[in-house]
């Protein structure tokens, strides 16, 4: 099988994530789009791990998964705090520091 096929799938997932990050204004959905970006990067790592017959890609994918878990925990906590203080989760209403 051509190695370009899984890489193109990963690029498609990445583009969907980019679209989500740019177009969403719900804080939780923004974080979901970031998850798609990270998963596409993981898919690339796994495919290259298989292509090069080297387990390094698997190890790095594991670290990325762990770091992502931490990122989501903090992200959801920030969204909850936002909702409690402003009664909204729309990220484009956070323009206090906008020039």
């Amino acid at each position: 099988m051509y190695v370009a096929a899984p890489l193109l799938l990963s690029a498609f997932m990445f583009s969907c994530g980019v679209y989500g990050v740019l177009a969403r204004r719900h804080g939780v959905m923004l974080l979901m789009a970031v998850e798609l970006l990270i998963t596409s990067a993981n898919l690339n790592l796994i495919v290259f791990s298989q292509l090069l017959k080297n387990s390094l890609g698997n190890i790095i994918a594991l670290f990325i998964i762990a770091v992502t878990a931490a990122e989501v925990g903090i992200g959801i906590a920030i969204v909850m705090l936002l909702y409690r203080q402003r009664s909204t989760v729309a990220v484009d209403e956070l323009h206090l520091m906008k020039w």
Binding site: P6, L9, L43, Q50, G57, N58, A61, L62
Partner: peptide, 11 residues
Amino acid sequence: ALFILFGAQFV
């Protein structure tokens, strides 16, 4: 499932 297909069972 794709990870498992590409040999990365644990991941």
